[in-house]
């Protein structure tokens, strides 16, 4: 039972990290072109570095 004191904060923290990541993707407009994103991974452009 003592483990709970550790595990619960950890699970809440991980959930929080996920939420923050989601909000970040939303702010960065990453849901505007789902079809395009699915296809872009197949392209050979900017394979060596991210497009600035």
């Amino acid at each position: 039972m003592e483990m709970l004191a550790l595990l619960i904060p950890i699970s809440l923290f991980l959930g929080g990290v996920g939420l923050v990541a989601f909000l970040w993707t939303l702010k960065n407009r990453q849901y505007e072109d789902p079809d395009g994103d699915a296809n872009r991974i197949l392209g050979t452009d900017y394979d060596d570095r991210p497009k600035s």
């Binding site: 395009g36 296809n39 872009r40 991974i41 197949l42 392209g43 050979t44 452009d45």
Partner: peptide, 11 residues
């Protein structure tokens, strides 16, 4: 409609 179209047009 595809990945090639995207890079063709953008390039």
């Amino acid at each position: 409609h595809c990945a090639v179209c995207i890079s063709d047009v953008e390039r």
